[in-house]
Each structure stands twice: as structure tokens, then as C-alpha cells.
Design a binder for these strands. Sequence first.
DNA 1: GCAAAAGTGTTTGGTATACACCCATGC
DNA 2: GCATGGGTGTATACCAAACACTTTTGC
Lengths: 237, 237
Amino acid sequence: MDDITSLSGPAPQINSLPDISIDCLVFGLDNGRLNVLLAQHRDGIRQGQWALPGGHIGALEDLDNAASRILQDVTGAQDLFLEQLRAFGRADRFPGGRVITIAYYALVKQEEYKLAAGGPASQVKWWDIHDVPELVYDHGEIFAHGLKSLRHKVRHEPIGFNLLPEKFTLLQLQELYESILGVSLDKPNFRRKMMNMKLLFDCNEKQQNVAHRAAALYRFDQSVYSALAEQGFSFEV
Amino acid sequence: MDDITSLSGPAPQINSLPDISIDCLVFGLDNGRLNVLLAQHRDGIRQGQWALPGGHIGALEDLDNAASRILQDVTGAQDLFLEQLRAFGRADRFPGGRVITIAYYALVKQEEYKLAAGGPASQVKWWDIHDVPELVYDHGEIFAHGLKSLRHKVRHEPIGFNLLPEKFTLLQLQELYESILGVSLDKPNFRRKMMNMKLLFDCNEKQQNVAHRAAALYRFDQSVYSALAEQGFSFEV
DNA sequence: GCAAAAGTGTTTGGTATACACCCATGC
DNA sequence: GCATGGGTGTATACCAAACACTTTTGC
């Protein structure tokens, strides 16, 4: 269970696949800023260095389940949005031996979860994506690739909602896109575009305790989107 | 080198990673029909069954290089368009033991290459994508996933050209999209769309020996596209 | 002339963009 | 009243879809 201690090193258990690891790219949103979750090596030659949280796959464990378990160890949260990015397998990528890693990326509602701080990997911390430290092995490459993939995917599929709380305002949604894509968007036009897609449902509630006019709160319903997508509907921001 | 004989079974060589394989989804275009390349098991319990061509990764071999080598064994061709799809790793996907496979997809100019028929895997054959036989293990799932990915990608990146000969007509290009996407397109509008992108270069040549007005031949220049993409240009069909 | 495909022109309607504007609320 | 963000309206320009039309070539 404590595969995270390995931080993608050689498999610590006899019942794990020795030459394959999993690394997770976990994105979160905090006050309109996009963050990524990093873990710090606790000891060994790489002590103090930062890495993507990772682990190994049980011999009888499905790949997706392994990723989910590893992520739960780090965030304490289940049922997160989690998808495979791809495998990274340069022969020399890991100095401790030949290990191919399969990268996953996750989107989490950052404010809803408290990190299991001080867990097995001495420290786990959110970093602004513009300000990540140097990462071990090829983790920098994985991060760059994952961020690019996120930017592409968020424009073509409604996955961004996984970063927001259940109920959100249109401005929060707009700031999410501005933050991920690194652009600024026109408010009236963004509103219309979203509303015309008929994917947002008015909660009939307003923000509370704000120092300005309270905004309407909306929900996104994944099942309605799935039904629309069946008929060829295409989500494009 | 003859990893293809294994068709993704357990690693036959001492110097291959035992619990990881590579499977290749090779697409080709023939007279406007989209095909996929399949290999037939030569012997063993699965004799006669069809599978994606695959193999194992050398202990000192980069992942991408391994895929390229395996593909060369099958098609005899180098420098094909080849990209990773993703890893497939259900615990029970391969009955002979725990093997995670990393799927690649390739696009080839079908008419330019003759297959190494009667090679190590008794037979290698093109199949119309609408008519593929039942495949071994989870290869059907990999095929379905790869086709979906191809349909998505071809609309957002100019990769379709890899299926056409160097010089092609606009109708060939249109038929390519119609075939991959399974739709029919308006000729005048398709022409304009393509020409407006400024990605096609007139060869100043015409078709030869056709029983109708000869069409102009065009080329696609990957380097010009790359330069445009740098500036934020987006290819959308 | 006819068939087949190349290639052009035009009308129409929707939609993205830019920007001006009013509304509600707390301090 | 004023700052802050919520929310609406509208003119313009562009672009995609639909489809009618002309051109070239081989038989």
C-alpha cells in the first residue's frame, strides 16, 4: 500500500510489477490559479527533491485501479477525475534501473480536500504551474506533456468542471479557462457561449456574503452531457 | 528481432521486459477505404486467430524505438508516422500471464509499401475497418479506442496526409476525410476550407491518364505547418 | 454528345467579436 | 457615491452551408 514511498523507484514489494510504475499529475484550482501536486523525496540520494506522486502496480491489480489507489494515498480522496496520459519509456529515464512509467492526470476540487500532509513521502504540496521546481528523472517532461494535453482537452471536452466546486458562478468558470489556457476572455461572449450549450443548470441560488451583487450559482450535469455527446454534440470553448 | 512471433505473448527473449508488450494499430488507405493491418497467429492454441501486430521491448531499447522496430518488421518500412495511443492494463487482459501492453498507432501510405507477406507471423493482411474479424485478448478494445482517437485527431491536426501519396488531388483528400469520419462533405466548401489554410502547395502538375478532366496535384509541407502552429494557428476540419 | 470529375460563384443564415451599457450590493 | 462584479443588448464582420453553375477531358 505504501508504494508512494518509492516515488517510482524500483518496486518495493514482491507482488508488484518490477519494471512498470505509475506517476500522477494532479491538477487543482485555487482562487483562479492552476496548481499541480508534488511530493518530496524523504531520504536517499534524492532527498529533498520534488517528484510527481507515484507508485507501483500490484501483480493482480488493474492499471486504472492502481492509479486510483495511489492517488487516494496522496489526496485521501476517492472518485476523482482520473485519466491516463500515456507511457514514458526512454531506456535511461530512471537511473536505478529500467522502469517504464505510465502517467495519469487527475483533476481535483482543491478546496474540498485536505492533503494527507506528512504522509509517507515527507511532504506533499501544491505548486503554481508557473512556478514548479526542477523535478527528478523525466518528471519535468511528463509535467510539460500533461499540461499541454490538459490545455487541449479542456477546449474540446467539458472536463474543466472537475476543478470547480459542485456549485459555481460563471465568472469562476471563465477564470478557470483563462487560467488554464493563459488567455483573457470577453465576459458577455463567454456567458452566451456557455449558456447556449444548455449544459449548465441554474441552482436558483445566489452567492452569499459577497461585497457586490451576488452571482447566480450553476451546476454541470455530466449525464446530460453524455447523452448529448451520443448524438454528436461537440463541446468547444 | 523476431518478437513479432510472440504476437504480444510472454517475452521470448531473456533481454526483453517480461511484463510489457507493444501492439501496433496500423492504418492504411486504399481507394478511399480505410484499412487496418492484422497478423494471424501461426500456431499454438490461438492458431488462425487475428491480432494486432506486436512484440516486446528490449531491455535497453527506448519505448518509441521498440515500436518503430516492430512496425518495420511487419511493413518493411521506416520513418512512418507513429505515435503512442496509450497503455492497456486490465489484470486479466492476457491469459498467459500479467502483461501490460502499450498501443501505438501508425498511418502509412498503403500503396507505397508491399507487406512482408509470409513473414514470421504466418500472415499479415489489410482489413477494411468496417469488416475486421474478432480479435484476440483485448485487441478489439484497442482497435475501437484507436479508431476513435484517429477520428478525433484527424479533425484537429493535419495527420491525415500521412495516409496519402506525396502528391494528391483535392478529391483524394476529401475522400480520406469522408472515409475516416464516415460522413459526406460538400466539395466546393471542402476545397475552400483547405485552400484557405494555405497548407497545400500546388505542384503545377496534373493527373495523367484519367478519363475526365485532370485534377491539379498538391503537396502538404509539414515544416510550414509546424511554423504556423507555433504562432497559434489551429488546424480544424 | 455524354459521362465524369474539376473547379467557380453566389446567396443565406448563423455566430463570434467588440464594446457600450445598465443592475445590484457593500462600504 | 463609488467600487466591484453581475448581467444584457447590439452592430459588424466573417464564415459555413447549400446549391447552381461552368470547364475540361476521354470515349
